[in-house]
Design a protein around this nucleic acid. Sequence first.
RNA 1: GCUCGGUUGGUGUAGCCCGGCCAAUCAUGCGGGCCUUUCGAGCCUGCGACACGGGUUCAAAUCCCGUACCGAGCACCA
Length: 513
Amino acid sequence: MVERVNDLDTPERRDRLEALAPERLAELDTEDDTDDDPLGTLPNVDEYDQIRMRLAPNPNGPWHLGNARMPAVIGTYKERYDGWMLCRFDDTDPETKRPELAAYDSILDSIAYLGFEPDEVIRASDRLETYYEHARELIDRGGAYTCSCSAEAFSDLKNNGEPCPHRDKDAALVADEFEAMVNGEFSAGEMVLRARTDITHKNPALRDWVAFRMIDRPHPREAAAEFRCWPMLDFQSGVDDHLTGITHIIRGIDLQDSAKRQQFLYDYFDWEYPEVLHWGHVQIDDYDVSMSTSTIKALIDDGELEGWDDPRAPTIESCKKRGILGEAIVNALVELGTSTSDVDLAMSSVYAQNRELIDDETDRAFFVRDGVERQIVGGPDAGNPPVHPDHEERGTRTIPVEGGVLLESEDLPANGDRVWLKGYGCVRHTRDALEFTGDSIDVVRNEGVPVVHWVPARDNVSLELKTMDGTVTGHAEPGVQSYDPGAELQFERVGFIRIDASSTPMVAYFSHP
RNA sequence: GCUCGGUUGGUGUAGCCCGGCCAAUCAUGCGGGCCUUUCGAGCCUGCGACACGGGUUCAAAUCCCGUACCGAGCACCA
């Protein structure tokens, strides 16, 4: 029987199924409604009235493209499920990953550039009292103890699955010592509060982790500068996720054990842990600079990069300068999905997305790098290429040839050969000039005459083009002068660019081919 | 050392939970062709992948075991 079914082809099976069980066929047909984004569905969405997610950036510097993945994916899910999105600054380390005051705003700016707006913004450093209250509650429930072991001494015990002497401390003493921590009566390293998990747990990463520690250096935010007793990420984030009603957490595989650690906390408090997804690290091709906040910062400090918006830096600010839309970045990042394995983001994918978004609206212009000058002999006074080849209604540009033209040296034909100056006509290279031939466009179609871009030798605009490989100087056609900073153009046969400054020379950033 | 996770074409991804519509999706990339006064867009077309070995099964990308490789955690970082 099974073999006979296997022998049927798909339409035959459908026919048989329709005859036997039409309702099952309808089910099959509706199973593949797909969304317009490539992300998978979130787990158990039906169990929640509202999907609530959070971005949890550490404000220790401006964002790079990897950081953008969080708002790109979470923001996309928010839109799909009509959910709620929190931006929570996890700024609880004034020492090792010290927050940078300017980063709070710059991160919010980057999120906005990507096209998203958090429904609420909070800072962990505003919430210390809340964490203290929960720590007291945890101590009351027997879930934590103060410990004055050195990090090394505790690590040795822990690795052998042995408790430290402080583990069975009297609850009242724990409470007192914790208040002393809160009051700043200890210095860094002298005392911590540990979560009591399972000191013999087979995974050593979960054994009695630190919940609070002392930090001597004041927090850079004035409002938080007086505190010395700071929660660790697992405690702070665990409490906040519950209090803000987060239903779905998405975070990196480096935090794979976090949920397991925090589960002990949730058990003590009798809370329900949110759904959690982990994704791998993102690497990026095409850049020589690694996608790491600290690396980029170091290169800027050393003068290797001009700043966070240097086109060689894989940052959001640099993309913005280059005219790469936030939407293009988001589309490319969303395409990466949320797999747990490490992924490479191909910049060609970002470029393809951006091209699709801006191509139709972007005016065309000529830009000649390292120009070779030649006089034009005979022929009209000016060329008139279209503003956009697909939109005749947008008109034409007027580019004079009086006084000669500049061609890219590679485009200058050999003596005696012809070349078609785009928007002007066919010319022949004779000794030291270009003679207008009056040939029709058929010579391009049938005889293989190359088509090249050009600019007037005199009436042109000097322009510096900043690219990932350094700055290129050259000359643009006169009309480029009239574009304001922020405008995007396509330099024909060169690529898309964004005008950055109307100075002399003008400054533009190269977007992509 | 202990623990946890991963491996689908050049890149990314879908499918895996619930084995059969999978001779494996879509995008990007690269190659051809058409069109074209761009190296852009559009249209047509081609290239190219289930890490390896066993097992279960009528049937395995999908389930199980092992191997290899990659990654992560075992911080008083996030």
